[in-house]
Structures are given as C-alpha cells and as structure tokens.
Nucleic acid binder design. Sequence first.
RNA 1: GGUCGGGUGGCCGAGUGGCUAGGCAGUGGUCUGCAAAACCUCGUACGGCGGUUCGAAUCCGCUCCCGACCUCCA
Length: 500
Amino acid sequence: MEQSLHVYNSMTGKKELFEPLTAGFIGMYVCGPTVYSDVHLGNCRTFVNFDTLYRYLLHLGYKVRYVRNITDVGHLVGDVDTGAEDKMAKKARLEQLEPMEVAQKYTVGFHDMMRLFNTKSPSIEPRATGHILEQIEMVQDIIDNGYGYVKNGSVYFNTRKLVEEGKGYGDLSGRKIEDLLSETRSDLKNQSEKEHPSDFAIWIKADENHLMRWNSPWSVGFPGWHLECSAMSTKYLGKHFDIHGGGNDLKFPHHENEIAQNIGACSCAPAKYWLHTNMLLMNGKKMSKSDGNSITPTELITGDSHHISKGFHPMVIRFFMIQSHYRSTLDLTDEALLAAEKGFKRLMDANRALNGLQSTTESGALDADIRDTIQAAFAEMNDDFNTPKALARLFEIVPKINSLKEGKIKMDQVGAAALADLKACFHAFIFDIFGLEDQAESGSSTGAKALGGVMDLVIDIRKQARADKDWATSDKIRDSLKEAGVQIKDSKEGAEWELI
RNA sequence: GGUCGGGUGGCCGAGUGGCUAGGCAGUGGUCUGCAAAACCUCGUACGGCGGUUCGAAUCCGCUCCCGACCUCCA
C-alpha cells in the first residue's frame, strides 16, 4: 500500500517519489488560458484536473502556492515573420474593442465557468500584460548570457547554443534538434530573421498597426508567447519550483521554450516535476470547431447542442472528468455523461445515507474492511493522483452503506470510530479532494424550506392512504409528484423524496 | 513523413505476468400493494498474427486502426 505520493514526471517519463524542494511547501505553476474567446471545454478539463491535484496536495497538509496565469498578450496567430497577429489584437480588431476589453470580457467568462465547476482560485493569477517589465528584464538577461540575438528590433532565442552546450533543448518533448532542423513544413520557411528554424521570438517588434505594444531597449513591440510564463513563474515561485503543469499540447513548443528561457536567463530549469494532462475528445476525436465536433461548456450545461440529449450539471461534468485519469484521453459522449450522472447521484445519495447512520457499538466486524478500503482509496491518490481508482474504492463501500441504512446489515457491525472515519473519508474525498458539491443539499433558500414542509405534509397524507390501502390516492400522489419533478422512494423506514 | 501515446466486455473507464477495478446499461432474484430505490447474483472483455513463459490481456516482434504533437491550441 503506497503511503507516500508519487507523481509521473513528463520530463523523465517515470513515476517519481514526490519530495518538495522545501519540506511542507509546494510551488505549482499551471499554464492558464489565453483570454481571446470563450473558454474551451478542454481547458476546463485541464483546470479541473489540476484543481483536484491542488486540492489533494492541500489535503495532505502542504502549504501550496498555486500560480495560474492569464495570457492576454503575446500569443500569436500564424507565423511571426509572415504577418502574424496577436490573438488578443486580432479579436479586438474583429470586435472593435480595446484589447483589454477583450481580455476582461473573457477573463470574467473564464472565472464564471471555473466557479461553476467549483475549482478553487489560484493563489496568484498574474496577467502577462501586467508583467511586461519582468519580461523585458528577462529578455535582457537572456541576451546578456549569450542566448539571445537581436534582428531588426526583434529578439530571438538561440536554441542551437543550448543544444551545443548539452543543456537539453528538446528533452521534455522528446525532440531532437536535427529533427527540428530538417523540418520541411512550408509554414516554417520564410523565417529570414531567425538564424535557425527552431529559434523562437522572445521579443517582437510591432508594426504601426499593432494595437498592443510597449517600449523596450530593442523596439516598440510585445513579448513572445512563451516568455510570460518564464517571467511570472520566476517572479512568484522563484527560479526553481516544484510543479509545472499544463495541457499535453503545450509540451512543444511552449514548455520546451519556457525551459530554454529559464536556462538562458538564470541557468536553471524552472520545475522539478512536469505534469501534463491529456486531451478531452468528443466521440473519439479531438474537439474541433471546423468539423463541428465541438461543444462549449455552456452548451454542455444547458443541453443546447445536437451532440447531447440533455444538459448536464457542472458537478456531473466534474464527476465525469474525475472518473478518468488526468494522463488519459477522455472521450465525451452522451451515453457516458448519462452514466456519470447516475453514478454521481448514487455516490451523493450514499454519502447522505452515511451521514444519517449512528453507530451502536464500540467496534464491529466490518471495521477492518472499512478501514482497509479507506486506506486503499488514499493509496490510489498517492499513486499519481489516480482519481478513478480512488473513486472505485468509494463505490465499493456504497452497498454497505445502503445495507446499513436499510437494516440489511445491522449497525452493530460497524464500530463508532470506524464509522466516524468512514464519514470523514467520504467527506474528504467527495467535497475536499474531488471538489464535488451535493446539489440536493445546496438548496437552502426559503423556497427549499417551504418545499420541505409541503413534502412532509404530502408524504404524511400518502402514508395514511397507504395504511388505508387506498392505492388510488397513494399512486396518484406518487405519479403526480413525479410529473412535477419529485421522486418518492418508499422504504421500511418510511418514504423519502428528492428532486429529479 | 517524424516523435509520442493508445486500442479493454453494450457504453465510459482503471489496471495488471497467474488473484473481482468501478460507474452506466443488461440478466436472474430479494424487498414492495404495484412501482421506484436499495440489496444479492450473473456476464467471464482485453485490435489481429506470431514469439518468450509453467502461465500474457499484461513482456517482445510484426501488422491494422485511432489519437496527440511537429503550426496556434488545455
């Protein structure tokens, strides 16, 4: 049973024992969104995955500084030397807005969505435009250290120098400089300013029409896309920190170039552990707006899409994401979501049933089994955050909880201490670690209270009808309530109800 | 074309050299006035072809298929 945390490090391709650089403290940097359009559902998966990871680290008692940036400049569409345009600027031009208006609009939208998915806010959420000075300083350091060269007001990173010095450009993404050299794609040609095809821009001279630009020692321009992460992670987490995360598709070139910049600026690779989440697919393929194989988070929630039969609550979506491992692709299908919805409900019902249990004994026959399963669940999390397996362990206990509730297993089978542990474990996993919320308990408004009062009355009336064997009345109440969206569930202990 | 990852029962999704993943759906049963829920039970899956092994879905080779990256992408 693994008791210490192991994580899969993309840099080494192996699971490694997780040891923070400073005992008790963790610095974690995750690449955030570029706020030039509504947040993509795939982004949501990545951020939900890292949120779960963050939550687990907190649960383990670490003091975590979680930094996730907002990219609001420097992210290019197309190629730098062939009429590239900043994503932010392009959107601003199309929508006739100030670039900062675009950034603000989509940042707010992003935060709203993150809130719906119940992700915790990062400790720091720095913006690229708020750190232009730091980026300029970093470019200067890179130049001073001989890793950057200036061409016509733009500054490029010299990747060959890194390779020649054996400092591992390409290690993270498994690329060889020769492969990069022999690149034949036509898109990459015509880069006259670069001395080598694998070099990349760290400062870009802006043309006169460019909306976002700043003064620098080299030109009026803007920073390269990869630079912000290097500058901001260094500023808030130091030159070397514990975890750097992001989507799989950022490995190259983004993370690779980020590492190069850090080495170039301060001779130090930024992170000890690199964690990458895998892609979210839909119907077996990567989501793509161009072939219509795409769904937005909002559509998924409202059900306004031909890909799905109905809308799904954000918590169902989060549960769905937790059912797969962060390093695996996850295939989004209507059927899978429907299954997740039922599974989520079953887990939440069980948790509520668990909280209603009262032990009648000091110790019981099931104690050891319960404790083993709890321990196993945590062991799964320690094995590279294996949420699907941990969840499976929880589900293994669900039949026992339901049996206890219904009296099929006597309460003297579970001791008070074991039951308390079980309640604590379920609470920790469901709410603290998995970050789920119980919809049935979230309605604490006066309306919900009134409904509760009404239901107590209705159930009481139906109880009397059943006692009188007045099945017509009893069934009418049940059927009508179901039509109104309330499900009655009978049991030996009496009837319960829930909103469907 | 290059690099990497993957193909698991009806669907999703873990995992692994011999020991039940789990969820959903399905089977049969218990309970119930009838249902629903719940509980019990069952299914005996690992792309194809070879090889290694006492034994492979798990290791090796070949092959087919899929995905990601190589250009912006979580």
